[in-house]
Amino acid sequence: MAVREPEPYDHLFKLLLIGDAGVGKSSILLRFTDDAFDDHQQSTIGVDFKVKMIEVDHKRIKMTIWDTAGQERFRTLTSSYYRGAQGIILVYDVNRRESFENLNHWLQEVEVYSTGGGREIVKVLVGNKVDKERMVPREEAEAWARSKGMLFLEASAKTRTGIRQVFLEVVQKILDNPSLLTNTAPGRPRVNLQADAAAKGSGGYCC
């Protein structure tokens, strides 16, 4: 069936939230899309996405934001969703040092699995849960992010701090990079992971 886009937009961006389990990826997404917070957010057992429209520079940006499972055992599975993304939001928990230490692993995944080795892709580091006690100094995270050519922001999905800013920064950076904008305008072929994966499927589903 032909895909109909009920939402008119100038660009369609695919963004991915990655990082250790429990750092608050789903909460960041929920805060951004629904302006809500759930103290008992269940852990994500797979890959889900939400659609979000924003206006930046008089351009309508439609985003599909993919929320991934952070558990170690799913790591290789989630990496298969990196393809075609223009932006990666790498999240750690400022209250849990381990989640910061693991960032290198995550970044490696990005380099291996995202389009073009992840060189062009916009990466932003987000230190979430700044409402809690801090175990990772801001300066340290900032320096790490700078050394990896990433943007850096601190945020709290619980208190709203910095959440919108995270997405605005990513979108702005993508808009600034013409090479990322190919295939993002409507009506042109887009990278569609789901279709790709389906083509490889084992059969046995409806036509």
Binding site: L77, G201, S202
Partner: peptide, 26 residues
């Protein structure tokens, strides 16, 4: 509409000791 799909670079949806019924549905 749900269906099981193989993991990236795999050809079957699960290991051979497991069988799933149904494998898709609406």
């Amino acid at each position: 509409h749900f269906r099981f799909v193989p993991k990236l670079e795999e050809e079957t949806i699960c290991k051979s000791w497991l069988s799933i019924q149904p494998r898709f549905g609406m």
